[in-house]
Structure formats: C-alpha cells, structure tokens
C-alpha cells in the first residue's frame, strides 16, 4: 500500500502549487475523501489541507451585507453561528440534513460542495467492483447506470449545492485565475470529473446574498438520518423583483443540480393557485430523469420529485402570504 503525504500550506498560492503535485487532492474534513480512500475509490498520494490559509476558516459580513463563509469552516460551526441561522434558514436546513452530527463536526462547507459523486455501481467494496468490467468513472469505457450515455452520470449528493443554487450564492475559486462564479457553474455535468475547476484551482469561500429569497428544502432518503439524498429539492422565490424570480432546483438525480426552468417560468407571473402549483410540480418531474444508480429505483425517485416539489412550493407559497400580510 502506498503512503500518502499530507501538506498544510499557509497561503493560497502554496495550496495552488501543492495541487500541482501528482495525485494531489484537497483534504478538508475528510469525511468523503477518507472513506473513498479506504474503498480504493480515490488513489491520491498527496493530501493538501487548506485550513491554515488565512480566511478559509472565517465567517464575515461585507459592507453590502453579504456573508462570506470560508471553505474550511465546518458544517457544525455554520449551524452554531449566531448570525448565519437568522439570515439563511434555508441553508441551515440543508446543513442539518447532511449525514450525522458526528460527521458535521468534521465536514466542511467546501468539502460539501465538492464532495465526490456517487453511484451504486462504483461506491462498493473493492471485491464487489472486481467482478465488473470498469465503467467510465473507474477508467473504463461504459456506464452501467445509463448504458446509452457517453459520460458518467454518477449523482451529485451535496445537500448544500441545490440550496445554495436556489439562493443565488457564489463560490470563490482560488488559483492562477481567482474569480467568483455562480454556484451552478461549479459543476461540469460529467460524473467522473464533476467540478469545472482547472488543475490547481480550488474553492476558497462561498458568498451568500444580502437579501436571500424565501425558500424551502426537501430531502428524500430511505432513513430519517445519515443517508445520502435520493432526491433533493430546493425552491426559492424573490417577490421583490418583477417578474418574480423563481428557482426550482432538483438535485441528487445526476452529476449536476437541475433547474426546472419550465416550472419556474410558469410561476414567475400569475397567481399561485393550487392547480398551478401542481402543474409546476408536474413540469419539474418531467424535467428530471434519475439514473439507475441510487439506492432506490428510478421511477420511484422521479415520481417522488412531484410530491417533494409540490410540498416545497406550498411551503414557499404560505411563507409569501405570511410575509405579504406582515409587509
């Protein structure tokens, strides 16, 4: 068994340099990377910690009222923060839905966004996989979950990704060309190399809007805790704009969170009657096509999208009414 080097650079530039070493990976909380190493799914030989880089463990609010959270801040710290919960209840809901309390004390904000994609045909013990001809993600030439696909369709299981997308959050990419990107632009659409980050690039922080939209989050999983999502739904609406800005994001059905644009369009204008909400939920369901790589079956997951979206929309609708009544 090969040994692994663990580097802890002190500056962003050094992190970028370290990521240039062969087989280099960021080791944040390690709650995804270490199990993957155990299962021989990740064969990285250099682990690069980012927690020593100034700012990566900080939570701060800029002059415009936008909160910026460092990538190495843990999920438990986010949940315990005195201000964040009040400003971003939707994000908190997603954070609380991740894994278990033990894992959340270790897992980080950056790690949760970059967490590796999963698939029933790959996230298995080595002995299990040894019986299969390798698929795309294992360096092979086929996909068992979607035989007609020319790309790996392993699922993005991050619970925070759909919520942050629905909230309009951004990510700070560090590297030779440091920049802010919309969260949706972090994901490539290929389950094998699921991030759009270039070699040497990494996520330094995320930034949340000063005035977050109203929203709702639903996570469907076999058990009430611990399990990865089989379907995630995040819905948001900003009524201060005209027309309204509606975001309906369905995740854990493929390598990227999916925007149900046709459903969004329907709800941008006009009343939110229960018929129209149901119509939107139907459109959302039609917009996603889960693959056969989850714990539960394809059609059950697709069907569940309808109920989850409808449920989330109802919650947002009543929040809008409540807010309107108060305003």
């Amino acid at each position: 068994m090969s040994s692994t080097a663990w580097l802890r650079p002190r500056t962003a530039a050094e992190v970028t340099m370290a990521l240039g070493l062969p087989g280099a990976r960021i080791l944040a909380g390690g709650t995804d990377l270490v199990p993957n190493r155990t299962w021989e799914l990740d064969t990285g030989t250099t682990w690069v910690g980012i927690g020593a880089v100034p700012g990566t463990r900080e939570v701060r609010c800029d002059a415009a009222g936008r909160w910026e959270v460092g990538a190495a801040v843990t999920l438990a710290e986010v949940l315990a923060h005195p201000q964040l919960g009040r400003h971003y209840p939707l994000w908190m809901e997603a954070m609380r839905a991740v894994a278990t309390p033990e894992i959340r004390t270790q897992a980080t904000v950056g790690g949760n966004l970059c967490v590796d994609t999963r698939c029933r045909f790959r996230n298995q013990p080595p002995i299990w996989r040894s019986g299969l001809i390798p698929c795309f993600k294992s360096g092979g030439d086929r996909c068992y979950a979607a035989p007609a696909s020319r790309l790996c369709v392993a699922m993005l299981v991050s619970d925070s990704a759909p919520v942050l997308m629905a909230m309009g959050a951004e990510a700070a990419v560090a590297g030779p060309f440091a920049r802010w990107i919309a969260l949706a632009d972090l994901y490539s659409g290929d389950g094998d190399r699921h991030l759009t980050l270039n070699p040497g690039e990494w996520v330094r922080a995320i930034r949340l809007p000063a005035k977050p939209p109203l929203g709702a989050f639903r996570k469907w999983r076999p058990r009430a805790t611990m399990d990865f999502p089989e379907v995630d739904v995040a819905v948001s609406v900003d009524c201060d704009e005209e027309p309204r800005v509606v975001r309906i994001v369905v995740s854990a059905v493929g390598p990227v969170p999916v925007r149900a644009t046709s459903a969004e369009t329907l709800l941008e204008s006009g009343p939110w009657t229960s018929e129209r909400l149901a119509e939107a939920a139907d459109r959302a369901r039609a917009a996603v096509h889960p693959y056969d790589n989850g714990q539960l079956r394809v059609w059950g997951r697709q069907r569940a999208v309808h109920g989850l979206v409808l449920d989330a929309l109802r919650q947002v609708a009543s929040a809008v009414v409540e807010k309107g009544a108060q305003a």
Binding site: Q124, P222, R223, T225, D227, Q295
Partner: peptide
C-alpha cells in the same frame, strides 16, 4: 449469489431517528 449491498451505507438498519 453476489451481495449487492455490502456496506452499512446500503444495508439499511433503522437509525435512532427512524
């Protein structure tokens, strides 16, 4: 004969929350 859910992430025993 090959076990398809050989980890406790896949073999679902109830958790306290269930």
């Amino acid at each position: 004969g090959q076990c398809l859910n050989g980890t406790l992430a896949q073999y679902l025993i109830p958790a306290a929350a269930d």
